[in-house]
Design a protein around this nucleic acid. Sequence first.
DNA 1: ACACACCCTCAAGCCCACTTGAAGGTCAAG
DNA 2: CTTGACCTTCAAGTGGGCTTGAGGGTGTGT
Lengths: 158, 158
Amino acid sequence: MAGLLIGDVAERSGLTAPTIRYYESIGLLAAAPRSSTGYRRYGDATIAELQFIKKAQALGFSLEEIREILKLSRAGTTPCSRVLDLAHRHLDAVEERIRQLSRFRDTLAAEIRKWDGDREPTCRGLCQIIAGTDEPLEVFRPRELGAKNERRSHRKAR
Amino acid sequence: MAGLLIGDVAERSGLTAPTIRYYESIGLLAAAPRSSTGYRRYGDATIAELQFIKKAQALGFSLEEIREILKLSRAGTTPCSRVLDLAHRHLDAVEERIRQLSRFRDTLAAEIRKWDGDREPTCRGLCQIIAGTDEPLEVFRPRELGAKNERRSHRKAR
DNA sequence: ACACACCCTCAAGCCCACTTGAAGGTCAAG
DNA sequence: CTTGACCTTCAAGTGGGCTTGAGGGTGTGT
């Protein structure tokens, strides 16, 4: 009987069998056809799809976003502008993070040089150094790019 | 009585009161002194510390790592060589992170360019574009950069 | 005196992306 | 016919970093 077993697919895609079942369970992957005894049977298309999922994930997309992409993709006719937009936003986020990290690295490196030259380096400095750097950093939350943590309550003064 | 209430600290630091209590509970923040009725009382130093935590977090450090930094930092009198050493290691970590992110950005940007250039950017094409790319992409796992997912079992052929 | 915005603790829940475990069915080789 | 490597399902656990809820105390303005 034709078709790969889940373990073969797992091996070829570099995922685990439970992960593949999990993907099916959350609707990321279409339900595989079954053999008469209930075994899932796969074709090469699934491996390609899993590799797509892996790479999309590696590119920073959440499973939710990937599902959205695949849904649009399966619809076929829908334009890809949303997907493209999503990718652009990810790129922006990544670049901003690189900038933040670079600034931090410079600050840290400068501080270390100061310390290295210092005869009597105090540890207390560390907090102030890092805490006292320039503008407030935006928190980069790779998996949830929407900033849903805005709390600006007006407290009654006591 | 002197001292900020937890809500004031929350507002000024941009965190929430429960989060601050949580940080205390996991030993990230020192236990605040209490008023006679049990209210936590804070000084400005705590706000600076929380901002340090926020920034370190934004830079990709886990609370565990931040705790380590703060612990050494608080040790105060102990020779600073350890802190310095830690700082060096963090600098290395930051630089490695920058390199990883840069590679990641290049890959993503390349995908987007490919995609942008496409006259008929069908989502199907997109999938194939990403799925069909050359070398395997490195998975970018922001919080756990260690690649612990190598499974290469040898399956018996059936 | 009362409302109301704070504060406290402790426990449980949530989210994501899985992983692990238990209990059992299937299939090919020896 | 047994062994053992596979497959099945469903449930529960993991980990990081919180958030939410219940139940109850505090402090101030009117």
